[in-house]
């Protein structure tokens, strides 16, 4: 088992039955991602990027094929075990942040910890530590609508990494941000990748964002059509 990469997909297919017509979102994807990689997934809308991301994130199940995460066949796990996996080993960052609107920044970061069964001071301390990692601990008591887009995305990243996951999955994390904030978010992700060795997978439309990633996948019509690994110093040119 230890020889398997962190993420290993074979022949992944996903078919959505949409009002009688079958939509083939994935048409056979083979993909291996090693521990500590930083990968960009690109491709036009409807190419299956998000579907692949949902399956990798254990948010959805493939119709066919196999997916091994951290040496475990996810098809063998029940819903409860998948939820625990998302809680402990996976972190999500979304284009629209998905913060609970009526909860403070701190509370939003605390939610994954609650679901891990943590309570009391430990929850607060860990959440605060996560916020301070991204320099927003002084905004802990603010509601999301009192924060700028960049600040909200940093809260969301803090929430994604508060449980020290193996993988951070970011679905167009800069899609709603201006250039300055986009670069900032990418710097944060890149720093995590370099300093903590966190595996990072980013869906993006923008070549500049993809430029931060040493490995680029391009999808089209439910298949990976390009898998390009550049030399590690490409990104320093882009910044």
């Amino acid at each position: 088992m230890s020889t398997l990469p962190l993420i290993s997909c074979r022949g992944l297919k996903k078919i959505y039955p949409l009002s009688g017509v079958e939509v083939h979102a994935l048409r056979g994807v083979d993909l291996d991602i090693e521990r500590g990689e930083m990968v960009a997934i690109m491709g036009p809308s409807g190419s299956g990027k998000s579907t692949l991301m949902n399956i990798i994130g254990c948010m959805d199940l493939q119709t066919q094929g196999s997916y091994y995460f951290d040496g475990v066949n996810t098809s063998d796990l029940d819903a409860r075990e998948l939820a625990a996996l998302r809680n402990k080993k996976l972190g999500f960052v979304f284009q629209r942040y998905n913060l609970l609107p009526r909860a403070s920044a701190l509370y939003n970061v605390e939610i994954p910890l609650f679901y891990s069964g943590m309570y009391g001071e430990e929850v607060k301390n860990r959440a605060l530590a996560a916020l301070s990692r991204f320099g927003i601990d002084e905004l802990a008591d603010n509601l999301p609508n009192q924060l700028s887009g960049g600040q909200q995305q940093r809260v969301a990243i803090a929430r994604a990494v508060v449980n020290d996951p193996l993988v951070v999955l970011a679905d167009e994390p800069t899609g709603a941000l201006d250039t300055t904030n986009s670069l900032e978010v990418m710097n944060i992700l890149q720093k995590m990748h370099i300093e903590q060795g966190v595996t990072i997978i980013i869906i993006t439309h923008e070549p500049e964002i993809a430029g931060f990633c040493p490995r680029k996948l391009i999808m089209r019509d439910g298949k990976i059509i390009s898998n390009e690994i550049s030399s590690s110093d490409v990104r320093s040119k882009e910044v």
């Binding site: 994130g57 948010m59 819903a79 409860r80 939820a83 625990a84 998302r86 809680n87 402990k88 999500f92 998905n98 609970l100 939610i111 994954p112 679901y115 891990s116 929430r159 449980n163």
Partner: peptide, 16 residues
């Protein structure tokens, strides 16, 4: 619904 989805993404199971 989105809140439920988010809670599930960060680790809530069905029972939660």
């Amino acid at each position: 619904t989105r809140e439920i989805g988010l809670r599930m993404a960060v680790g809530a199971n069905k029972q939660d």
